[in-house]
């Protein structure tokens, strides 16, 4: 059959070897070994000196960039937290200052009102004293008038009773005597 001729032709032709099974045909070994050594050494050199360092560099760069970005984010976060703390501190300071100003203002206001109050009281007291003085003067004047009126009344009464007017001195003595009682 055609198949069997193909079989023999296939194994016989290329290397013209003795072994029927190509992997065990020693005539092909030198060529295979030479090319294995050439290609393996070449590949090793290319990998070790060129390709793998390049891949490693790319991976390293990415990791470095990610680490850098994280550090940058960390730094910015710290910065923003710092700013927030500063803002809160400023706010607290302003609040404390406002409180202080308000307290001071209130105290000043209270002191002023106290002073005004005292001033007013003093003025009123002065007015009161003056009024009392006026009252006393008026009373004295009134008392003096009473003596006059009493002397006039006495003189008139005595004149009516006895028909003669007593002397001023007598009347005055009598009134003073009566007022003393």
């Amino acid at each position: 059959m055609a198949e069997s001729t193909a079989h023999t032709a296939g194994t016989e032709a290329p290397s013209g070897g003795h072994g029927g099974f190509p992997p065990f045909n020693p005539q092909t070994f030198p060529s295979q070994l030479v090319w294995l050594v050439i290609t393996f050494v070449l590949l090793y050199a290319l990998m070790a000196k060129w390709a793998l360092p390049q891949v490693a560099r790319v991976i390293e760069n990415r990791q470095k960039r990610i680490a850098d970005d994280f550090a940058e984010a960390e730094r910015l976060k710290a910065q923003s937290e710092e700013a927030l703390a500063a803002y809160e501190k400023a706010l607290a300071d302003a609040r404390a200052r406002a409180q202080a100003i308000a307290t001071e203002e209130r105290e000043r206001e209270a002191a002023a009102s106290e002073a005004r109050h005292k001033e007013l009281e003093r003025a009123l007291n002065a007015k009161l004293a003056e009024a009392e003085k006026t009252i006393a003067a008026t009373k004295q004047a009134a008392m003096a008038n009473v003596r006059g009126i009493a002397e006039d009344a006495t003189r008139t009464i005595v004149e009516r009773l006895i028909g003669t007017a007593p002397g001023d001195k007598v009347v005055a003595d009598a009134v003073a005597d009566a007022l003393k009682r």
């Binding site: 079989h7 032709a13 030198p30 060529s31 290609t39």
Partner: peptide, 29 residues
């Protein structure tokens, strides 16, 4: 159709002698 045929080393062109052995550029190479 021969299942072994695929493992055949085919000498594409010779490169010279290395001792007694002749070195070829083969399909494997």
């Amino acid at each position: 159709m021969d299942p072994i045929h695929q493992f055949q080393i085919v000498n594409l062109f010779p490169l010279g002698k290395f001792g007694h052995a002749e070195i070829f550029f083969t399909n494997s190479a």
